[in-house]
Amino acid sequence: MLRVRAAGAVETEWLPGFEVDPVVVLRPHRRGNGDPAWKLDARGTVWRACTTPAGTATLAVRRAGAHVRARAWGPGAEWVIDGLPDLLGASDDDSGFVAHHRLVAEARALRPDLRLGSTRRVWDALVPAILEQKVTGKEAWRTWRELCTRFGEPAPGPVPERMSAPPTPERVRAIPDWEWHRAGLDGARRRALLAAASVADRLERAAELRGVRGRDLLRRIPGIGVWTAAEVAQRAWGDPDAVSFGDFHLAKVVGWALLGHDIDDAQLHELLEPYAPQRQRAIRYLEGAGVRRPRFGPRYSPRDYRAF
């Protein structure tokens, strides 16, 4: 993969050996429509602002025929360009996957471009995963926007408006108490985030360990359980078996898709067992097929922890 430096950016054009749509692969990294670290422009270019071991970076990536074109800016530009193939699923191996349900087989046939990508960066996936613990997406995404905009660095390069990178562990540790309230974060999630920030460098090893060992390393931090570790693993190293057990909706959605009725986590574990070690891949196929559970009753009401 040839890299070229031009006008302060690092550029590359890559020919993957598989069908890939960057928008599809990178969409799981978006945290709501107003995510300041993830944008999709009118040309179909995905923009990602992120932290890296070398510093903040912005990556712009789009498909151009059979090729993928990417540009990156900032101190971490080389790092994100080096990781482009992994980010778009080049290391993903679905050769052993077997569809045990008709709907999963149909969804797989419809989405040959579905790949499980790897950012290789634990911290950027861990922060929003902690924010999303036991609250609505609307609540978590509001706090994510606040933290990125007010405590993250502006995204380097000629980027879309109002783009910011996630705050670094150092910035998170320096946030005063009253700012946490203003950002809408309760005490339990704040404590988990601060605990993770204090050992963030060591947690990056989880992306090297991968699999169960990587998830177990994350779970050593107070406040990080099975759900949070799985959400990080799915994004940081494209873990094909990391299931977000404990999710408010997941068991019900999968139950309706495959059985036509609600199930609980224990039943979800049993239902997905034939797909191990690629249980998360089966879920992604169902999501890609647009499976939705019928809604019953009022939605869960968001809470507001902000101090006024």
Rank of each mutant, 00 (worst) to 15 (best):
Q267W: 01
A251V: 11
L110H: 08
L185Q: 08
R115I: 07
A233K: 01
V172A: 04
V61T: 03
L2K: 10
V254S: 02
A77G: 09
A276K: 06
L114M: 08
D239L: 06
Q234M: 11
A107F: 05
T58H: 02
R3E: 05
P160S: 01
P75H: 12
L26N: 01
W14K: 00
W178C: 07
R31G: 02
G225V: 10
R69P: 01
V104Q: 03
L114K: 05
A229N: 15
R30M: 10
P277C: 03
T56L: 01
S198F: 01
A289S: 08
A236R: 11
E231T: 06
P156I: 00
R30W: 06
F308Q: 10
T228C: 14
G65T: 04
M1R: 10
A37R: 12
Q280W: 15
A236W: 09
W123V: 01
T149L: 11
R182N: 07
R190H: 08
R202F: 00
P176M: 06
P160K: 00
A105I: 00
W79R: 14
R142S: 12
H181R: 15
L26V: 06
A206L: 09
S164P: 01
L218S: 13
V291F: 02
D86I: 02
W38L: 03
G74R: 02
R121D: 03
A174H: 13
S95A: 15
R205P: 00
R284W: 14
P28G: 03
K134M: 07
A60R: 03
